[in-house]
Design a protein around this nucleic acid. Structure first.
Length: 343
DNA sequence: AACAGTCTCAACCGCCTCGAG
DNA sequence: TCTCGAGGCGGTTGAGACTGT
């Protein structure tokens, strides 16, 4: 059975939206509300298909959309969630307030993916690339000059991208918002602290990915830290805490604490510099092999002595348990699945 | 200044899911 | 239970901006 495409129609316009079209769409949605997208073009007097209207609204015009540079903590969450959920952009977007799945997807494909590859990490598996045992780190091991004004502007100021989309466009000029202009060539150098940050995040992402992979193969019981990694005397208390672990629904703090953060993204007063300080203090006894992002770093990072071991175990195993419980993977159809393997 | 190559991201495409009838 | 359609989702595309020569 072939479904008729929703956007088949004579004279339907495609391509970039003009400010005039945006105005019509916005006023129409204000009047009639969201939904009923098939009727929206007619109500708004637009020669667009409903789907196009919905996308334009959802990805660009919706008033509570946050635009502009992704913060470091947002990057971490993207990397972390991508490691555990893959290209589930909508799922990732649910944990990044005011970001759209499309924007996250674009950001991943154009920035984070490349950065991770440069670090010698497979962006799909989040494991070290076998073909690149000595990943280059030149892009990240820069002069460590934190006074670099460019870098400061990256994290401290409001990007022009936050400006309203139509602020400079004539009504009939297809919009290519100012954000594009300001965001071009954001090859900002990363300080070593940023490199540490990325390593830390990716390390935890990789560890979660490993745990997930292992659990999917039914080998969790024999290979996870929970059962075999110096934790034979895992306490009942810890087990209880793990049973209650739900990094998504319990608290945003738990997600963030898993990657070394104690903050709330929705709190606009969050001071990221405090986080960096906190992180750098944790890095005090770490290896200097920061830019390499190699296997040793990954493992040493995960088993960091700067954090209570039980806490690490709770977080990592809690993550894996959560992800197993909430995975789209259907164990019932997996013949190898043995429920007893999962605690 | 002009051109070619590269990069970014808004928008599109096609498939999937789910609810209504 | 089946069909249909709206909305959702992830992959891909291509226009326009940027950079290097």
């Amino acid at each position: 059975m072939s479904r008729k495409p929703c956007c088949v129609g004579e004279g339907l316009k495609k391509g970039a939206w003009t400010a005039e079209e945006d105005k019509k769409l916005i006023s129409c949605i204000h009047e009639h509300g969201e939904g009923g997208w098939r009727d929206i073009p007619q109500k708004a007097g637009l020669k667009r298909c409903g789907k196009s209207c919905r996308l334009r609204w959802a990805n660009y015009l919706k008033p509570d959309i946050k635009r502009g540079e992704f913060s470091y903590e947002e990057e971490q969450i993207i990397i972390m969630l991508h490691a555990s959920r893959g290209n589930k952009w909508s799922v990732i977007a649910r944990h990044l307030p005011k970001r759209t799945d499309n924007e996250i997807k674009n950001y991943w494909n154009t920035h984070l993916k490349k950065r991770i590859i440069d670090q010698g990490i497979d962006p799909v598996t989040h494991k070290p690339l076998a073909s690149d045992p000595n990943p280059k780190a030149s892009d990240f091991q820069d002069d460590d000059d934190d006074s670099n004004p460019d870098e400061q502007s990256q994290s401290g100021s409001i990007s022009p991208k936050s400006l309203p989309p139509s602020s400079s466009s004539s009504d009939e000029t297809p919009i290519r918002n100012n954000a594009s202009l300001s965001s071009k060539k954001r090859y900002f150098k990363r300080s070593s602290s940023t490199s540490k940050l990325l390593n830390k995040v990716a390390a935890r992402a990789a560890s979660i990915g490993n745990i997930l992979s292992a659990s999917m193969e039914g080998t969790l019981i024999s290979s996870t830290p929970f059962s075999s990694c110096h934790n034979d005397d895992f306490s009942e208390t810890s087990q209880l805490q793990m049973e209650e672990f739900d990094p998504f629904s319990q608290s945003e703090d738990i997600i963030l604490s898993d990657i070394g953060m104690n903050t709330d993204l929705s709190n606009s007063e969050y001071n990221f510099s405090q986080f960096l300080e906190q992180l750098s203090s944790n890095e005090g006894e770490k290896t200097d092999n920061i830019g390499g992002y190699d296997q040793d770093l990954l493992m040493s990072d995960v088993s960091s002595t700067s954090v209570d071991d039980d806490e690490i175990m709770r977080n990592i195993t809690g993550w894996s348990n959560y992800l197993i419980d909430h995975s789209d993977f259907n164990y019932e159809t997996n013949q190898d699945y043995d429920e007893t393997n999962f605690i």
